[in-house]
Amino acid sequence: MKSASAVSLSGGFGEVRLGRDYTPTFWNDTVFDPFGTNGVGVFDPFGTNGVGSNLINTANDAFGSFLTPAASTAPFTNVGNSNYVRASNTIGYFLPPNLGGFYGQVQYGFSEKTKYDNGTFTPNVANNSRAGRYVGGRFGYANGPLDVAVAYGSSTIGDQFYVGTTTKVNTLNLGASYDFGPVKLFGEVSRAKNKVDYEVTPLFTGGRPDVDLTGYLLGVTVPVGAGLIRASYSRVKYDFNEVQLPFEPATADPKASKLALGYVHNLSKRTALYATVARVSNKNGSALTVGGPAFVTGAFTPKNSTGYDFGIRHAF
């Protein structure tokens, strides 16, 4: 799981955590207890490690750099960070663990920008005023074989003070798992919106349309002796909400799907062998991969991406 850096104070009141930490919406994608669950995620058999990581995580991690009015980084204009995985300068609070299975957290991340009074002294530089701010929360219920949680986060990923625009990514996801014993089922649905707020909405164009990213995941794990079979199917779709003009051919929305299969064999309580194979299928210009370098886009964009991983994991 990707690293964070934070300090905390905990007690009967719960936990207060400060620093660079995972966001509430990311917790529904990632590994909750890698030592106790064979590296399985809360609502995903593969968590966010290796080629099996689901497309909801892959697509959302890059979604904040999509079509933002900010400093340019080809091929899109972006600030390079959507706060999807983690946010800096955060204050977080976690509920205590003795609430009959209910759990939750809230988090606020400061933008660490200088506020000028009056505002006309603000430098005319993109992302100088509000970019980096984050607010979110996650609440769930875990009891016996059932675990379910909903999370929401809003990240300010770009701003231009004098233009009067603020770009945000708002993310909502819901995950659930149920352990039947012979099999454990996983599921997640997610919706993210990349939107521009205008101080004064452009008169004729109405401004840049919102871009939506929706996705879902279905997964299963099956214990087999000292091992664990893992499988998942995930799918995402982009919607640019473009206005369709009369007699103009409809533009198909980019979408992608991913199938992942894996096996974990426990040699001991701390050591395990693992292997995974995964394949991403892209349509209508989507260019998601199983990991590693991104596709070189242009006149020709590859439609498929296949990856493998195998190795040994040891918990110290």
Rank of each mutant, 00 (worst) to 15 (best):
T171Y: 11
V135L: 13
G187V: 05
K113H: 10
Y84G: 01
G14N: 01
N83D: 02
T271W: 07
A315S: 14
V183M: 11
K255V: 07
F94V: 08
A231R: 09
E15K: 14
P209N: 04
S257M: 01
T156A: 04
N57Q: 01
L9F: 15
S82F: 10
V280A: 00
T251E: 08
G153A: 06
S8W: 13
T77V: 11
R270N: 12
N78I: 02
K168Q: 10
P34G: 09
N194Q: 13
A142Y: 10
V125M: 07
L203Y: 14
T271V: 12
K195C: 03
T271L: 09
F32W: 07
G207Q: 02
G285T: 05
F295T: 01
F121S: 14
G181L: 09
R270W: 06
Y116V: 06
F240L: 14
R130P: 00
A6V: 12
L9E: 08
N173P: 05
N127W: 00
T201Y: 00
A149L: 10
P302M: 03
K2G: 12
S177D: 15
A70W: 04
E199C: 00
F46S: 02
F161E: 03
T73F: 13
D33K: 04
T214H: 06
R230N: 12
V51S: 01
R86Y: 11
D179H: 04
P249V: 02
D253E: 14
V264D: 15
R133Q: 12
N28F: 07
N57L: 11
V296D: 14
R17N: 01
T120H: 09
S286D: 05
R20W: 12
A151I: 09
A278C: 09
A294E: 10
N54Q: 06
F161P: 02
V290H: 09
A278G: 05
T114L: 14
T90V: 12
F35S: 12
A315R: 11
